[in-house]
Design a protein around this nucleic acid. Structure first.
Lengths: 207, 207
DNA sequence: ATATATATACCCCATTATGGGGTAAATCAT
DNA sequence: ATGATTTACCCCATAATGGGGTATATATAT
């Protein structure tokens, strides 16, 4: 592994300095920039063009989640690894959606951080195991759904923007049958519209 | 880490036996069952109640992907780790959606497989780094979208099943403006319906 | 065996949403 | 300053929706 040019954006001085120290000491990677917030970093980013940015989420000024798209606009090919104490589904998914390539918790040992830097450079997606688990769970359905298999199938087609007619044709059933299923779905989810049914079903991972 | 009761479903004798041998030799986990296909395994699963199942995808009879929900129905709390030579987005996401807790490529060293068994028992989500990268990319949008920001926003609301009227209200614009955006979205995606627009936009990760 | 859930299908009705067409002005960004 | 974006209005016919009632066959579970 060649020397990787790394930049750190982290407001806590102790954490920032110890990461920098350990990375420089235990690997061949170079810490080419250290910043206490995104606004400071922004001025230098284009000139610096780091390979990897270690980014904290809890920052003064623009937070890490919102900083990701801004960084990606300036440096589309720079990999961003989130370093955070928080492991909530919401934050993790937003970070990944916004363009982060990895997500580590701050209690990760320095070896894990160093190998994560190498991993992203090689096209990997380094994550703490609890983070990986949350990411996987984000794909999985809730098996305590009140909806039947057929109802789930219909609501999924519905959520794909299809009309009753089209769903009926594709499922080889009558449009009236689709309608009856829909009526039962509305009753079970206690809603009275498509949008509400989709929203409830998605948030509860029924579909 | 206590001894974990592991079961292997893998049709290739050499791979199956070498996994079993290495796991028994290098860890305290117990291989309590080995099967060449899902049908064979199914007979014993409830009685065996393994903690973890190492599951191949390319199986004779029912394939691994389809076997996952069947296993989960019999053993809802057993963790399933996929072992596959294939790393296509489609297979990986289907496996995770169906309930797999981890996904390793077959070239993984035995240490990685052993630690994966421990990781799932502790609530983690073990993945090969290339798999993790694909999973992360599944969350990320295509930034070469022909759609404008506003159009993406509107199509996302559209994909949430909302009507033009509701979108207009929530976005503080006129329904006619929503309509114009929609018309431009249809033109850019070369479609003539909601369902097609959503389908194209989702498959190309524009939304 | 009997109750409950599921999947199928038909009828009525009024209201709402959709897609296609044309046009245009203000603002934003390269 | 040229093209893209965002906003908004007009016309029109057709399709889709949601609410109501009813029914029958099959599965599943207690």
């Amino acid at each position: 592994m060649n020397s990787v040019r790394v930049c750190i954006i982290e407001d806590d001085e102790l954490i920032r300095d110890s990461y920098a120290f350990l990375i420089e000491k235990k690997s061949t990677h170079k810490i080419i920039g250290m910043y206490v917030d995104y606004e400071e970093a922004e001025k230098d980013l284009y000139e610096l063009h780091p390979d990897v940015i270690l980014l904290d989420i809890e920052l003064p000024g623009k937070n890490g989640i919102d900083a990701i798209p801004s960084i990606k606009k300036i440096l589309p090919d720079t990999f961003i690894i989130i370093l955070s104490v928080f492991e909530t589904e919401d934050l993790i998914l937003k970070a990944l959606r916004n363009g982060a390539s990895g997500y580590l918790t701050k209690n990760s040992p320095s070896e894990k951080i160093i190998s994560a830097i190498e991993e992203v450079m090689e096209g990997g997606g380094p994550m703490s195991s609890s983070v990986a688990s949350l990411v996987i769970k984000a794909f999985q359905k809730n098996n305590n759904s009140p909806l039947s298999k057929r109802e789930i199938e219909i609501l999924e087609n519905f959520a794909a923007g299809k009309s009753r007619k089209r769903i009926a044709e594709e499922m080889f059933i009558d449009t009236e049958t689709v309608k009856t299923h829909l009526r039962n779905i509305y009753f079970k989810l206690d809603v009275h519209s498509k949008a509400d049914a989709i929203q409830i079903a998605r948030s509860k991972k029924f579909i």
